[in-house]
Computed example of a mutant assay.
Amino acid sequence: MARQNNYQNTVAFEADETSLKRLSHKRTLSILTSLALLAFLLAISLIAMAILYFQKERKLEELEEVVEKIRASLWLSNVRSKEALDNVHFLENISTAFSEIQARLEKANASRTAAQGRYRNLLGLVSTGWKFYDGNFYYFTQVAKSWQDAEKACRSYGAHLSSITSRQEMQYLQREASGQTFWIGLTDQQEEGNWTWLDGSKYNQRVSFWAQGQPDNWYGAPGHQEDCVHLAGQWNDVSCTYSYKGICKKVSP
């Protein structure tokens, strides 16, 4: 009986030990399975994180590219704006220069027109017998008239009976007169002894060319007055009613 009990106990112990081993093996498998699952999940998580990281990096790169494009666009816009402003300024300068050139051309055209008109006037004067000397034109009339009528004739030409204000002018008129007698524009009709030129030139006693003993206001003249002057080699005061040719003078146009 004792052996049988011992054998039964031993069998029961062995059975328990086997059960424990099986249980332990199951637990080990369960733990290993759990660890494998955790490892798998961790790997999945790492892969997912890696994918998200790379996606994030790509998004950042794309964003940086967009930012760079925006910066480039803004830079080009600024450049173009500057170029546009430069072009506007350039066009404004061109417009100003063109206006100046146009004004100069108009001025030059006006000068040319004036010069053509002046040339026509000069040509007309010369062709009708006027003589040019030292910036003035002179016309020696061929019809003898009183001093007043000779002055009227000169005015009809836009001139006056000639003044003589320099020795050179006096010598020129003496040569052109060729010894003939001509009225000149000197008179003291307004006030005796106060000589004036009809064309407004200032009378200068020191630049005068009176013949010897003149002016004398000769008492034997008609009306006992000699208020007008003629050129007869030198100056001589005579009655304004006498008839002589006249020397007309006008400033060059």
Results as ranks from 00 to 15, higher is better:
131 K>I: 14
89 H>V: 04
173 L>G: 03
88 V>M: 11
160 H>V: 06
101 I>G: 01
116 Q>F: 15
145 K>N: 13
105 L>V: 02
114 A>C: 01
164 I>L: 12
107 K>E: 13
75 W>E: 14
96 T>K: 14
175 R>G: 04
181 T>C: 04
178 S>M: 14
123 L>D: 07
128 T>Y: 09
116 Q>M: 12
120 R>G: 02
183 W>G: 06
83 E>A: 05
170 M>D: 11
74 L>Y: 12
136 N>W: 15
131 K>S: 11
97 A>V: 07
128 T>A: 12
154 C>G: 03
147 W>Q: 07
159 A>M: 02
154 C>Q: 04
144 A>T: 10
110 A>H: 04
148 Q>V: 04
179 G>K: 03
96 T>S: 15
168 Q>T: 08
119 Y>R: 12
170 M>A: 10
124 G>Q: 10
172 Y>H: 12
133 Y>Q: 14
135 G>A: 13
120 R>P: 00
127 S>C: 02
119 Y>T: 06
182 F>K: 09
98 F>N: 02
93 N>H: 15
123 L>A: 02
95 S>E: 12
91 L>H: 06
125 L>G: 04
180 Q>R: 14
102 Q>K: 06
115 A>P: 02
91 L>Q: 15
175 R>V: 13
79 V>H: 08
91 L>F: 13
155 R>A: 07
155 R>D: 04
90 F>C: 05
137 F>G: 07
89 H>T: 02
107 K>Y: 10
126 V>Q: 11
124 G>R: 06
75 W>K: 12
116 Q>G: 08
143 V>W: 09
170 M>C: 09
158 G>M: 08
164 I>H: 06
177 A>Q: 09
176 E>I: 04
161 L>G: 05
109 N>A: 03
118 R>Q: 11
175 R>S: 08
134 D>C: 07
138 Y>I: 05
142 Q>N: 13
123 L>V: 02
105 L>I: 05
127 S>G: 09
106 E>T: 06
83 E>H: 01
103 A>K: 08
76 L>V: 01
159 A>K: 01
149 D>G: 00
113 T>S: 08
132 F>M: 13
146 S>Y: 07
96 T>Y: 10
159 A>T: 06
174 Q>P: 01
149 D>W: 09
145 K>G: 02
154 C>D: 05
75 W>A: 11
122 L>N: 10
130 W>M: 04
100 E>G: 01
122 L>I: 07
87 N>L: 10
115 A>H: 11
89 H>M: 13
